[in-house]
Write a protein that binds this DNA or RNA. Structure first.
Length: 521
RNA sequence: GCCGCGUUGGUCAAGGGGUUAAGACGCCUCCCUUUCACGGAGGAAUCACGGGUUCGAAUCCCGUACGUGGUACCA
C-alpha cells in the first residue's frame, strides 16, 4: 500500500559541510544532490534545496550562495531563487529552534529522553581517565548514565532546581539495551543492529540548536520527506534515527532510506577529501572554492574546462550504472534511466582520467552552438575579441574532436587569431633545401594572386607548383603546416589556410622563410 | 578495542548456481590520416583466501584477511 504522502514525493538535499569552517561542496555532496534530483524527477516529485545553517556553515561567508551556484551550474537547480523557502518554511535550523525543543521535551515526557547537566569538559576528563586505565572509549549510555548528572540519576526536585538555575544542559535520547533495530535500505536491503553499541546521543545542544540526529527526524517529518538519501557514513547512526521516528510516534511516516556509497581516494586510504585534489592534481569541487582561512583558491571542474553535462554524467556514474553498455547520458536520460536499486553498495575510487574522458566525449557530442559561448569565454580570457562568429564556428567544428577540456581550445585554435610565437624550425631544417625554398617562393607569388581563396583552389595550386618543381606534396605539407601553426599539430592545412585568409597565410610563410636558410647560390 | 558496511583486471564495472567472465578508462600493437587528433581492428590484464553446500560456486553459507565508515554538545 502506498502511503498518501508517498504519492507526493519530495526529496530534499541535505548538503553537508565538513566540521572545519573551510567547507566547500565537494564531489560527494554534489552527487547526493544529483541522485536526489534524479530520483525525485523520475517519480514526479519535488526537489527541494534545504541548506542547514549550523554554526559551522554560518561561519563561512557566502557558503550558501556557493552551494546554490554549484548546483545551478550542474543544471539541477534554477539559478534564480528563491531557495530555502517554500511550503514548509522556515528552512533554516536557527529559525526552527522552537520545534526541536518542543519535540525533545515531548520525548522526555514519554521517558525516551532526559536532561543531562554534565559539561563537555567533565565528559572529556572522564574519557581521558578511562583511556589512561586502558579501558575502551566511554559511551554515554546505559552502562554509565546513572553515574552521571542527569534527570535520570537526580531527583525530580534537583532536576527542576538545576533547570531553573539557568545551568546549561543538553537533552539526550535514552537508548534501551538489548534492543534490535531493523530497517530497510533501498540499496543494501534489510539491516539489523542491536542498540548495545549505540550511546545516548545528544539531541538538543546546550545552545538550543539540535544535533543532526534530531534535526533530520523532525525536519523530515514536518517537511513530509518520503525518501532520504545520504552518505554511507551515516549508516552507523541510522538506528538512532529509526528509534527516534518510533519514539516520536511517527513510525508510519518514516522515509525510505538509501545510504550512498562513498567516493574514495584514487590511491586508497579513505574518503576523498578536498586535500586530495591538491595533492593529486585534480579538482574535487564543481566550482572554485576559496578556503576562508588560508585564502587558497581551489579550482573547480568548471574552471578546469569541464562541461556541466560531462560533470554530472561522470558523477552519476560513480556508484551507479544502467546495467547496459551506455555510458553517455544527458540529464534527461539520467532521469529516465536512474534507479536507486542499481546504486552500488561499495565505495568507488575516483578516476580523474575517466572524468576527462567523459568531457572529451561530451565536447565531441555537443554541437557547435553549445560550445560557442564557452570558447568565446576562453578566448576572452586571453584578450582575444571575436569579430567573425561564422569563422569561429568553423574553427570550433574543426578542432573540437581534439579537445579534452574546454581550455584546450586555446592551444588547439590560438594560431587562428595570433601568429605563433615559436616556429618549430628544427622539424623543417633537416630536410630543407633549395628546391623547397623555390617552391615556397613560388607559392607566395601564386597565393598572392589568387582570386578565389578556398580550400580547393589552395590545394590545387599547391599541388601544381609541387609537381612543376618535382617535389612530392607530402614533403611540403609538414613545412607548410609548421609555417602556419608553429608545430606538428592541428586539422588539415588547407582548412587552416582558408580560414586564415590570403594576407595572413602569405605573411606567415614569409616569416618562417626568413628564419630558414635562403638559396645557396 | 567495539560495532557497521564492503571485496570481479591497475581503475570503474556487467553478470547473482552451468558464460570462451560483457563493456569502459588507462596501457600496448596495427590500420586510416603526407601532422596531431577522431575513427577502426587487435592485445596484455580479473572473480581476496580457506572451508563447506552442490553433479557443478565468481554467484549460496561460514570463517579469515584486507579495505572502509562510525564510535563527539561535527555533519
Amino acid at each position: 500500500m502506498i502511503q498518501p504522502h508517498y504519492l507526493c514525493l519530495m526529496s530534499k538535499v541535505r548538503v553537508r559541510f565538513a566540521p572545519s569552517p573551510t567547507g566547500g561542496l565537494h564531489l560527494g555532496g554534489v552527487r547526493t544532490a544529483l541522485y536526489n534530483y534524479l530520483f525525485a524527477k523520475k517519480h514526479g516529485g519535488d526537489f527541494v534545496l534545504r541548506i542547514e545553517d549550523t554554526d559551522q556553515v554560518r561561519y563561512v561567508e557566502g557558503a550558501e550562495q556557493y552551494i546554490i551556484d554549484s548546483l545551478s551550474w550542474c543544471g539541477i537547480l534554477p539559478g534564480e531563487g528563491p531557495h530555502n523557502e517554500g511550503d514548509y518554511s522556515p528552512y533554516r535550523q536557527s529559525q526552527r529552534k522552537s520545534f526541536y525543543k518542543e519535540y525533545a521535551e515531548g520525548l522526555i515526557e514519554k521517558g525516551h529522553a532526559y536532561y543531562a547537566f554534565d559539561t563537555p569538559e567533565q565528559i572529556e576528563a572522564l574519557r581521558e581517565k578511562l583511556k589512561a586505565q586502558g579501558k575502551s572509549n566511554l559511551q554515554y549510555g546505559h552502562q554509565v548514565r546513572l553515574g552521571m548528572r542527569n534527570s535520570l540519576s537526580l531527583s525530580k526536585e534537583e532536576t527542576q532546581l538545576l533547570l531553573s538555575s539557568g545551568l546549561p544542559y543538553v537533552i539526550r535520547i535514552k537508548i534501551e539495551r538489548d534492543e534490535f533495530v531493523s530497517f530497510k535500505d533501498m540499496i543494501r536491503g534489510d539491516i539489523q543492529m542491536d542498540t548495545n553499541g549505540v550511546d545516548d546521543k545528544v539531541l538538543l545542544k546546550a545552545d538550543g540548536m539540535p544535533t543532526y540526529h534530531l534535526a533530520v527526524v523532525v525536519d523530515d517529518y514536518l517537511m513530509k520527506i518520503s525518501h532520504s538519501f545520504r552518505g554511507e557514513e551515516w549508516l552507523p547512526s541510522a538506528p538512532v534515527h529509526v528509534l527516534l521516528w518510533k519514539y516520536l510516534g511517527w513510525e508510519k511516516n518514516m522515509p525510505q532510506w538509501a545510504h550512498l556509497p562513498l567516493i574514495l581516494k584514487p590511491d586508497g586510504n579513505g574518503k576523498l577529501s578536498k586535500r586530495d585534489g591538491e595533492r593529486l592534481g585534480f579538482p574535487v569541487f564543481a566550482l572554485g572554492w576559496t578556503d576562508p582561512v588560508s585564502k587558497d583558491l581551489m579550482k573547480g571542474f568548471k574552471d578546469l574546462g569541464f562541461l556541466p553535462e560531462a560533470f554530472i554524467n561522470m558523477l552519476a556514474m560513480i556508484g551507479w550504472n544502467a546495467g547496459t553498455e551506455q555510458e553517455l547520458f544527458s540529464i534527461e536520460e539520467l532521469v529516465e534511466n536512474f534507479s536507486i536499486e542499481r546504486v552500488h553498495s561499495s565505495g568507488a575510487k575516483f578516476d580523474y582520467e575517466k572524468a576527462k574522458w567523459f568531457n572529451h566525449e561530451w565536447i565531441k557530442k555537443c554541437d557547435v552552438d553549445r560550445l560557442l559561448p564557452e570558447v568565446k569565454k576562453i578566448f576572452g580570457e586571453k584578450n582575444i575579441a571575436i569579430h567573425d562568429e561564422q569563422s569561429l564556428k568553423k574553427i570550433v567544428s574543426l578542432v573540437k574532436d581534439r579537445c579534452t577540456l574546454l581550455t584546450d581550445f586555446w592551444e588547439q585554435a590560438n594560431y587562428f587569431f595570433v601568429a605563433p610565437e615559436k616556429i618549430e624550425t628544427e622539424a623543417i631544417l633537416p630536410k630543407w633545401n633549395d628546391g623547397k625554398s623555390l617552391f615556397f617562393i613560388e607559392l607566395i607569388r601564386n597565393y598572392s594572386m589568387l582570386n578565389l581563396w578556398g580550400h580547393l583552389e589552395l590545394e590545387n595550386s599547391f599541388k601544381e607548383i609541387a609537381s612543376f618543381n618535382r617535389i612530392k606534396p607530402g614533403e611540403l605539407m609538414l613545412p607548410f603546416r609548421i609555417m602556419l601553426v608553429g608545430g606538428k599539430y592541428g586539422p588539415g592545412v588547407f582548412d587552416i589556410a582558408t580560414i586564415l585568409g590570403k594576407e595572413e597565410t602569405v605573411k606567415r610563410i614569409r616569416y618562417t622563410m626568413s628564419l630558414l636558410p635562403g638559396l645557396s647560390s
